[in-house]
Amino acid sequence: MKNVATVNVDRGPIPWTERIYLGPIVRGLGVTLRHFLRNVFGKRDVATIEWPEVKRQYSERLRGRHILTTKDDGSLRCVACYMCETACPANCITIVAEEDPEAPVEWEKRPLLYEIDLLRCVFCGFCVDACPKEAIIMSRQHEMAFSERSEAVVGIEELRQKGPIEDEDLGYRPYF
């Protein structure tokens, strides 16, 4: 074998200082006592987050529930190009396209149906990466729970962005 730099971590037989058991125990108790005292009287760097009163601040890359973004006039940006559906490893996006009657150019499409099964979704963000229109992004909303499986299949109305984009709790989206 090639000569590699190694460090031996063997500790050999238990020395008598450890054998009598007292030293290590006192030191061990010291450690826990230090943590205890510091938390009670000192800095109070308690690790526990008092959820739900206090929320942990997640970064703006957190992959939460999806948002379908809209243009200024309130229509969806999505052009039903199926790229997100293709890129999704979980196959949880269902799109049905229709001709967009309001489009300035011919054969523009828009989604008639756009559904995501949130219970299938693995929140990998591949749909966001795949979208060429920034039509699908993710929010930081991750506290979800459903009592029926059908409740979790969300469509355009649930996913559509509500109000101006700055007001959404924005999570993972394309970074420039």
């Binding site: 949130l118 979704c121 929140f123 979800m144 729970a145 009592s147 979790a152």
Partner: peptide, 12 residues
């Protein structure tokens, strides 16, 4: 109750 996520965050 179904909790979505992969894995769901502790909050979820």
């Amino acid at each position: 109750v179904y909790v979505p996520g992969c894995p769901p965050t502790p909050e979820a």
